[in-house]
Amino acid sequence: MMKKTFAVAALAAVMIPAAAFGQARDQIRIVGSSTVFPFSTAAAEAFGRQGKFKTPVVESTGTGGGMRLFCAGVGTGHPDMTNASRPMTKSEFESCAKNGVTDITEVKIGFDGIVLADKLGSAKMNLSRKDIYLALAEKVPMNGGLAENPYKTWAQVNPNLPNIKIEVIGPPPTSGTRDAFVELVMDFGCKDFPEIKAITDAKARSQACSKIREDGAYIEAGENDNLIIQKLNTSPDAIGIFGYSFLDQNKDKVQGSQIEGFDSTFENISSGKYPVSRSLFFYAKNAHVGVIPGIKEFITEFVSEKAFGKDGYLTDKGLIPLPDAERAKTRDSSVSMTKLAM
């Protein structure tokens, strides 16, 4: 009995000093947005391939989750960088500062388009953001007030659209793509209706704009965009919402709809003509430079022309590059690690 008790105690003792080797780290750690994940990992791999530094570890935690981890403090126990599919908010910046993370570099890496696509061979849609809002909102403006969404087909929303059932497969509310879709499409599409303008309470107004119907016309497909593409293939009338990189990889299966008359092409998103696109960022902790090897070199790799440039390998992965002048500016400010002020 004694021998065994001892063995148990020894095991418990082994587990605690394990804490001691948690400290040294020679590998960059990146957390954050799942939208930036494909680009961040591609850059990390290319960086690791050069063989001087270890390949950074990239975790996909979502923008908000990444910010929380990033802002938790300075030191090797905390990540060095976080990816974001939106700029850092003021409150996140303050929570960072409270934990001693005051010296941050912000790098804007490019754009990501959100596309609405359907199966190849189906009717190609030309939608406006107003149409999309009317088709997908839970309550729509009608006769001076808000009413339960009565629209069943696209033709009811706008007579110019084909007479097919409204069936949209998109991301769930937990997804960053959904947030961006609501902000860029729904909020924009609703703002000109007099009924919406008449709502004085800001909270109720944004609720009216951004609440998506739950009567089966909008189908939440989970966070897997490949799944949405698979579903589009089996239901020709459905429209899917996902990131541009998935359209780019599946052009032999699906076609992007036009929005406000513009195709969701690389050129249109890049020039800003295609309206549903957002900027992507990453943030780095300047205090970790020199502590964790390779941070500066990794940033340099990320903002090099062969990575996030027009013909870079990140554009092959579906990133829409910044305009030339902005790219040069970003490169200067990020390589010199200019401190973010807010």
Binding site: V58, E59, S60
Partner: peptide, 13 residues
Amino acid sequence: AFIVDIPSGATQA
């Protein structure tokens, strides 16, 4: 997480 390097010990990513 996206991890390229093959781990050589239990404390590595």
